[in-house]
Design a protein around this nucleic acid. Structure first.
Length: 146
DNA sequence: GCCAACGTTGGC
DNA sequence: GCCAACGTTGGC
């Protein structure tokens, strides 16, 4: 299983809206960046990701799961662009802010810091575990930790 | 609201 | 295939 991070501006598509879609999930469409697309092409069903609110909030607010592999982006006929579907799994008991990520030496190499504008990013396993700890969630059970 | 970073487009 | 122009993203 691999780990990812999905960015969204909350007034365009928020965590609440994502959660409202339930297990059916939602198409992560509209991405027009090759690197972000390539990341989505590399995803497999069951991969997990953080849901990050950019612009407003600037924090990781939840955990999602890839529930459909890359397919044609329904918002365009251009076959260069594909997208995956993701569904909400759990809230972060304590959202992890961009400021915290930037201030943490263990997270200094995260794409969130080094490739600020990339909208779909890979996350390393150790980064995943560390952020889950900061956010107060058990990465295995997805229950609030300690 | 500003502006820097950076990705894409299009002319040559 | 280069590179300037342009548009968008996103932190501040």
């Amino acid at each position: 299983m691999r780990y990812w991070l999905f960015k969204s501006e909350p007034f365009k598509w928020s965590w609440d809206q994502q959660k409202a879609k339930g297990d059916a999930g939602e198409t992560w469409d509209g991405v027009r960046n090759y690197l972000a697309r390539n990341n989505m092409r590399a995803m497999e069903i069951g991969d997990r990701g953080f849901f990050y609110h950019s612009n407003e909030g600037k924090e990781i607010v939840g955990i999602v799961e890839v529930c459909a592999e890359a397919h044609q982006d329904p918002t365009t006929d251009d076959d260069r662009w594909q997208c995956v579907d993701i569904r909400a799994l759990a809230d972060m008991p304590r959202p992890v802010t961009l400021a915290e990520v930037k201030a943490d030496p263990k997270l200094a190499e995260m794409a969130l810091v080094t490739s600020m504008r990339l909208s779909v990013q890979p996350v390393r396993h150790e980064e995943w575990a560390h952020i889950c700890a900061l956010g107060g969630i058990d990465p295995d059970t997805l229950e609030p930790a300690g």
